[in-house]
Amino acid sequence: MAFLRMIKKRLLGLLLVVLGVSFITFAISHLIPGDPARLIAGDKASEEIVQNIREQLGLNQPLYIQYGTYLKGLATGDLGTSIRTTRPVLEDLKAFFPATLELSLVALLFASALGIPLGVISAVYKDKPIDQVVRTLAVTGISTPAFWLGLGVIVVFYGKLGLLPGGGRIDEGLTPPAAMTGFYLIDTLLQGDKAAFVSALKHILLPAFTLGFVHLGVVARQIRSAMLEQLQEDYIRTAKANGTSKWGVILHHALPNALIPSVTVIGLALGDLLYGAVLTETVFAWPGMGAYVVNSIQALDFPAVMGFAVVVSFAYVIVNLIVDMLYMLIDPRISEVS
């Protein structure tokens, strides 16, 4: 019951967030100087032609009417038409969003799969050399600019060693899989196309590493401090006094309790990754929303930029919802109390 109530509350919150985000992006994109109609028509076009285009796009109408029209569309899932590509924004995003989401998820997987064990080891061997190494690594991860790291790994693994591709999602010679989930790693497997899968995997390694590296540090630090806290608790002493082995105490008792507060940090990291992907995608020529958005901004393509903001904040709220649901699943105290 508490579960359903929470979901209801969150869906309401989702509505408010989308409204807020659409309003802010709408305001900003219409207040910045620059005239998309002029941009489309070109420098040499007459004022008459530009005015025509304005009318076509509805840009001649008062702002509140433009916003109202936009909201009406939003309610029916219509994000408007891209000025630049002349396709529906929703179609464009559908084409690019899965690539970004796939990259972000693999980056998160990488950050957690490495960050959690590193955090645990770091806590267990607190102040020992291994802890110093992990902590240094964490700080390095958090403070390394993604584009710099991206260029670095491209130079090494693509340029010098020739081990991995330097950009794209799949080898040029291969046909991309038919979009079922939009995730190449899954679609290629579903089709049983092993070569395409291997190629997709190779392509995602470097960008996912680059994108995930920052969060590796965040996750390791979070797990370390949560573990240190749990290891001080009385129930740990009880477990030891009952004859539980050292690693039994660490993995079966301390870790599950340390993961609970860490779920939030890891969940919110996914939200960050979605935004952060823009930069990494640019470096790796990853055909996700990043490149689409950068191009849209340059073309003053309001509907496209707004669509991006709305979709990402939508995803952000959904991630939060999933985090809260996870909480209820793994922490018995919350599901009972709330």
Binding site: D234, Y235, T238, A241, N242, G243, H253, N257
Partner: peptide, 23 residues
């Protein structure tokens, strides 16, 4: 480890926190 919880058991002061909260 074989002694602890086997031939020798311990009981501590704080029953509120001496058990694992999530098991």
């Amino acid at each position: 480890r074989t002694l602890r919880g086997g031939d020798v058991a311990m009981i501590f002061q704080e029953p509120m926190t001496a058990l694992n909260p999530t098991r």
